[in-house]
Amino acid sequence: MERTTTASPADFLDRALVEESAKKSGLLWVQPAGQPHARPLWHAWHDGAVIVVGDGAEQPLHGLAAGTTATLTVRSKDKGGRLVTFPATVTAVAPGTPAWDGAVEELKGKRLNAPDTDTIGDRWARECRILRLEPAGPLAPHPDGALTATPVPTPATTRKPIPAGLPKLLFKKKQKR
């Protein structure tokens, strides 16, 4: 007898949370498996997965490669706080396929200040990679701690006494003529 797995209502709610948060956020943090730090990437949500374009003249995709996994953290667009963290499998989208065309259309709308909006798909096909990061597994629990790190020691400083005349310049009242 063949065993079938059924998804629980919690699985559907988790999937909906991932999709909705990824659609509304313009930035997510991606930590490829084996990498010590997460990096911010702009993205789009398309056909059930996060899609990113990078390398070439676009954002660097350090450590992301087809066949690997990554941990994605989606942030709130308005407050910038962590919404959800989940594992994802990484696959490459091949140029010239229907999946490529759909991904380019979604990403093109999210790409700000592109120098070549009309021919961006051709440039991406020549120079860049489009990767599909599909959710794979349960959501990660929210961390208990603050996740803050101690700053790296440095002799650099930005604190100096303000010039004596600065308050007069800033708070000078306009004289009536």
Rank of each mutant, 00 (worst) to 15 (best):
residue 2 E to W: 13
residue 4 T to Q: 07
residue 6 T to H: 08
residue 7 A to E: 13
residue 9 P to N: 03
residue 9 P to K: 03
residue 9 P to H: 02
residue 11 D to I: 00
residue 12 F to L: 15
residue 13 L to K: 14
residue 13 L to A: 15
residue 13 L to F: 04
residue 18 V to S: 09
residue 20 E to G: 08
residue 20 E to N: 14
residue 21 S to Y: 04
residue 22 A to E: 05
residue 26 G to R: 13
residue 28 L to Y: 04
residue 28 L to F: 03
residue 29 W to V: 11
residue 31 Q to I: 00
residue 32 P to N: 01
residue 35 Q to V: 12
residue 36 P to K: 07
residue 38 A to C: 02
residue 38 A to K: 14
residue 39 R to P: 02
residue 43 H to M: 09
residue 43 H to Q: 15
residue 44 A to T: 03
residue 44 A to M: 09
residue 45 W to G: 09
residue 49 A to I: 10
residue 49 A to V: 08
residue 50 V to C: 08
residue 53 V to M: 14
residue 53 V to E: 09
residue 53 V to W: 01
residue 55 D to Q: 09
residue 55 D to G: 06
residue 56 G to K: 01
residue 60 P to S: 02
residue 61 L to M: 11
residue 61 L to Q: 12
residue 63 G to T: 08
residue 64 L to R: 00
residue 65 A to M: 04
residue 65 A to H: 04
residue 70 A to M: 01
residue 71 T to P: 06
residue 73 T to G: 02
residue 75 R to C: 01
residue 78 D to A: 15
residue 79 K to W: 05
residue 79 K to N: 14
residue 80 G to R: 06
residue 81 G to F: 05
residue 82 R to S: 15
residue 82 R to G: 02
residue 83 L to A: 09
residue 88 A to E: 06
residue 92 A to L: 01
residue 92 A to Q: 03
residue 94 A to W: 04
residue 96 G to L: 03
residue 98 P to K: 02
residue 98 P to T: 10
residue 98 P to D: 13
residue 102 G to H: 10
residue 106 E to M: 07
residue 107 L to M: 13
residue 109 G to H: 11
residue 109 G to R: 10
residue 111 R to N: 10
residue 111 R to D: 13
residue 112 L to N: 04
residue 112 L to Q: 14
residue 112 L to P: 01
residue 113 N to C: 03
residue 115 P to C: 10
residue 118 D to Y: 08
residue 122 D to P: 01
residue 123 R to V: 09
residue 125 A to L: 06
residue 126 R to M: 12
residue 126 R to G: 02
residue 127 E to I: 07
residue 128 C to V: 00
residue 129 R to N: 11
residue 130 I to H: 10
residue 133 L to Q: 10
residue 134 E to K: 15
residue 135 P to D: 00
residue 136 A to M: 04
residue 139 L to R: 07
residue 140 A to N: 10
residue 142 H to Y: 05
residue 144 D to R: 15
residue 145 G to T: 09
residue 145 G to L: 08
residue 148 T to C: 14
residue 152 V to P: 01
residue 154 T to I: 06
residue 155 P to Q: 06
residue 158 T to A: 11
residue 158 T to N: 11
residue 159 R to W: 06
residue 161 P to Q: 08
residue 161 P to I: 00
residue 166 L to D: 05
residue 167 P to H: 08
residue 168 K to N: 14
residue 170 L to V: 09
residue 175 Q to M: 13
residue 176 K to T: 11
